[in-house]
Design a protein around this nucleic acid. Structure first.
Lengths: 187, 187
DNA sequence: GCCAAGTATCTTGATGTCGAGTCTCCTGCC
DNA sequence: GGCAGGAGACTCGACATCAAGATACTTGGC
């Protein structure tokens, strides 16, 4: 990647040419990148234009979800697990290992999560009939209700966050992000 | 947002029309969205195409950075703070409050981080001459060296992650992400 | 000048996560 | 069929984070 990327001009909104709509507002990452270009003009910091925004946006999302779920007495991590089981379809059960790859946590964390969800009666742990090492985690009726209700309100919130962009651009954004994620999932 | 977004077809790569290059590989989010469309056909889950990818990509990035920094004996959170101070420019000092907005953590967390960085000799805490409530955190020479070295290797790693996309598309991606982040930063 | 409201930072307690190690069981090779 | 290596889930200790509240100071209105 060269230093002549679309952001090299030092202002946001690569497509703006002085006419048409005003340029977008600066965000924290614009300030961050601009500061680095001043302090370290020897480095090409353009990767941060994308990756710092991903990290920061994820943190904002995390906060928004945390407070939204909290109103329903639900923790974000609880939804992560319950929703994975819910969308697996009947009989709504997965192994801890499958849950790991879907939620991107370590096995110790997942054991702990399952324990607490089981204590709340949202899931039950059972043996895997085909592998005596294995365990199958299954959603209870109560857990399914919680997952369904939470998904509906999550989507409502997230739709509002995306209202700033038309569908066509959201599709482009999804495609661009996919190209970055596939690298992490290839093994 | 309607259910007729570019992703409604249920396969990734909205621009693919059956000719030209093959469609991209599916990622976990494609599977996730496809599963929801089967289980909850009554809901429009298209927001997840974007936001679940952001969350997951951030987690992958987090892991990659964690292991990369660990080779240098550095924690991700240490770099977050040191780099904010470094790019502030001489005399490399900021208040805890300014560090909060840059790193998106709570004040308790920042107090703790500064304590530990000070114990390692990477920053020093001093009084704010203009506000006796305030504190100024300043980078030591040692802290500056650590920050500079870590930034260089961070950028090297991240450039590789972005190599899959040409500069023009990275610029588009940065612009799209900016439009989502500004909403969180407006107050 | 004083007071109320606001701001900046720190303290505390609860909690979730990680990473390394352990135990059990499976799989394929000889 | 036995054994080595791998895979799946769990245990445990260390630790970073958060939320809420406490403390000290500042600011603006009167």
């Amino acid at each position: 990647m060269s230093a002549e990327s679309s952001e090299a001009s030092g202002r946001p909104g690569s497509a703006w040419d002085g006419e048409g709509p005003a340029p977008q507002r600066w965000d924290e990452v614009d300030r961050l990148v601009s500061a680095w270009r001043h302090e370290r003009p020897d480095l090409d910091v353009s990767p941060l234009e994308v990756l710092s925004r991903v990290t920061r946006l994820a943190r904002h999302l995390d906060r928004a979800r945390r407070t939204a779920f909290a109103e329903r007495g639900l923790e974000t991590w609880e939804f992560d697990v319950l929703s994975a089981l819910r969308r697996a379809g009947t009989p709504y059960q997965l192994s801890p290992g499958q849950l790991l790859t879907q939620t991107l946590v370590t096995s110790g964390t997942m054991t702990n999560r399952i324990d607490r969800l089981a204590a709340k009666g949202l899931v039950v742990r059972g043996p895997d009939p085909n592998d005596r090492r294995g365990v199958l985690v299954r959603l209870t009726d109560s857990g399914r209700e919680v997952a369904d209700a939470a998904l509906t309100s999550l989507l409502k919130n997230e739709r509002e966050l995306l209202a700033a962009l038309p569908d066509r651009r959201l599709g482009e954004l999804a495609d661009l992000l996919r190209e970055l994620t596939v690298q992490f999932e290839s093994e």
